[in-house]
Design a protein around this nucleic acid. Structure first.
Lengths: 191, 191
DNA sequence: GCCCGCATGTAACTGGTTACATGATTGT
DNA sequence: ACAATCATGTAACCAGTTACATGCGGGC
């Protein structure tokens, strides 16, 4: 569990606790709501990870918000552990883009369905872009630690660039499909 | 195995065979080399998937290139199956961007390490962009089926937009970090 | 003859997700 | 009291990856 593999979950958990102590439940929500744009952890991994980290002394189960719940806080060794983890090389996840896979086989899927997929991708990208704009404004206004703010805005900016790129690609692609002859799906009309 | 889950592997395999018949080995290489920019299948899944598809009559094991090897070809029912699969809704994969996760905790990682990560991301994006340019030229030149070419160029274009967005984000981010005070990692030198 | 690349598979392991089980606290 | 939510965990399952086992054919 301390191998190079499970380290990503550890990184997210320790990182979140490095900002402020919280319960496992709050941790889950923080990861979903704050890191959600570029990271996700499944529910069932948070508590086991917390247990492992506690065994290694990287986090402590401190004073309770109320009976039955515990506030997890990062320790000094946990801070060191986080630093070590952050310094590990980024492991590239194998790409799996369901949209592009379908478009690649667009001849079999049909031009109309492709158009619909791209249009939907455009809508999604626009929504994401709006969300990022809102988040950027919120982060710039609320965040107390200006040290953190700089980096948080960096991740938001990445999302915005990505969303804008998708928008541009979608517009360009829809134009290309409009210009192309509306051949029906998978027909060989070479005769 | 015929559930909504394993369907993505089936889609890639059937799609590849819809272009031309090949051996399982060639299939693996085609998926790696041709779909590699947006899709990946692990080796150990291709043969089981082929076996399942054969049982369902979606592919046939045809004439051999030489003893011991078989050419897999898509059948009529396989073509239908492919169409059905392609029409299934795109299932979004939960985001897991190790780079952004590290940058988000940049205060703990340190400004210098962040700069290095972004610089590396820039190098990678530039390399991808060059590759896409080469692929686009190659596809436009070689491809016989102009029906396929249109869609293939769409996926290449997506890669280019994405790579260019990463380049722009990296440049912008490096400028931001240069402008910011070079505070060392995780130190409180407020005293 | 021997090694390398093509070719087909299987087995074991790992990481991640979902669903389930349980109970405390708070507000109505 | 009752429902909703907070909170902590466990068990079962599934998908995907890696490594291993095997054998043929052709070139050196």
């Amino acid at each position: 569990m301390a191998g190079a593999r499970g380290s990503q979950t550890e990184m997210a958990v320790l990182g979140a606790l490095s900002i402020e102590p919280m319960t496992g439940y709050a941790l889950r929500e923080a990861i979903r709501d704050v890191l959600g744009h570029f990271w996700s952890e499944s529910f069932g991994q948070i508590y086991p990870t917390l247990a492992t980290l506690e065994r290694h002394g990287h986090v402590t189960r401190g004073g309770s918000t109320r009976a039955g719940s515990s506030l997890f806080a990062i320790t000094t060794s946990g801070t060191e552990r986080l630093r070590d983890l952050l310094r590990q090389p980024v492991q590239a996840t194998p790409p799996r883009n369901g949209l592009l896979l379908r478009l690649f086989f667009g001849r079999s899927l049909g031009v109309e369905a492709c158009r619909a997929l791209i249009a939907q991708a455009r809508v999604d990208a626009q929504r994401r872009l709006d969300e990022f704009d809102a988040i950027a404004a919120q982060v710039a206004g609320e965040t107390q630690h200006s040290d953190d703010m700089l980096f948080w805005l960096l991740t938001v900016s990445a999302g915005r660039h990505s969303a804008r790129a998708t928008l541009a690609w979608a517009d360009e692609s829809l134009a290309v499909l409009d210009a192309a002859p509306p051949a029906p799906a998978d027909r060989n009309e070479t005769g």
